[in-house]
Computed example of a mutant assay.
Amino acid sequence: MLLQKADRDPEAAEYVLLERQDWRKTDLLLNERRPMPESVWQQFEQDVAQLKTGLPAQYLLGYAWFAGLKLKVNQATLIPRQETEELVSWIGEVYPATTSLRILDIGTGSGAIALALKQHFPNSTVVATDISNAALTVAQENATNLQLPVTFYQGDLWQALPASETKFDVIVSNPPYIATDEKKVMDYSVLNFEPQTALFADHQGLAIYERLAVEVAHYLQPQGNLFMEFGYQQALAIKTIFQNALPQHQVEIRHDLADWPRMARVY
């Protein structure tokens, strides 16, 4: 009720309580008539007070779940989303898990995509980049904690890569894709707490895709695949950008579980 009055997500309180107790929803139902221990109640009150400010539950807890991995997150990194798990799953459909690939994740943030792919393709070499040193610090910590070896480089898109890192079988990216004029309709918690540089891009959110399209062929193996996530209204623009830049390639658009066009494969 307190969160609803503050125009915040009321389910966030339940999510945090379940995570703090290491419970599933069935555990909550089994214990709903039992008195809450004083220490648990005090922590819950503190958590609700934080959630009322708009702080996302994952930042409050300090971690988020992605593809079965528990990842540290903070305000230097985006909170990984379920839609991005679908992008990882798509790559898993294209290649057998035992394949030895060279994989590049551009704009890795917390390392979610890179680490999930390393877990799924243990025989593969995974490289990840980000423009933010603060984000890469989090990503490296996640890689260490999960014992998933990924090589991280700091820099802007291709500029992050040393000369030795050239051709990849798979390039994947979930770049900033929100147009700045969309701020007025965005969720308060996302707009005020998640990193702006990981959210917004010029040219109606298409600037990074335009840059990827120009140079990706130089870094992709002849039979390689580029996978990307994008905004639900950008499918036609994405397809046009890559068909114009890479006329010899195919562009496939895939819908997410909510039936929005949200992912592309260029091959």
Score class of each variant (00 low, 15 high):
L146M: 08
A128V: 04
M36R: 12
G62V: 00
K184M: 04
G224P: 11
L17V: 01
D169C: 06
D256Y: 14
T151Q: 07
H218A: 05
P122Q: 00
S189P: 09
L104V: 09
L161H: 14
D7Y: 15
H203M: 04
L117P: 10
L115S: 13
Q154L: 05
I106Q: 10
L161P: 10
T53K: 08
P175H: 07
K184C: 08
D202W: 10
D47N: 10
K239E: 15
L136A: 00
T166Y: 11
R81S: 08
M1T: 11
E141W: 05
Q75H: 12
A201E: 07
Q119H: 13
A135I: 01
E210L: 03
F44W: 15
T84Y: 04
T166D: 10
F242Q: 04
Q147W: 09
Y153W: 14
P35G: 02
D130L: 02
E194T: 03
V40D: 15
F200I: 10
V150L: 03
D27S: 13
K52N: 00
A139M: 08
Y153G: 04
L236H: 07
A160H: 10
I178K: 01
E32F: 15
R211S: 12
K183C: 06
A135Y: 04
A198Y: 06
W41V: 02
N244T: 15
R8I: 05
L18R: 12
T240F: 01
Q4K: 12
F200S: 06
E194I: 00
M1C: 05
Q154D: 15
A198E: 10
L78F: 12
K118E: 13
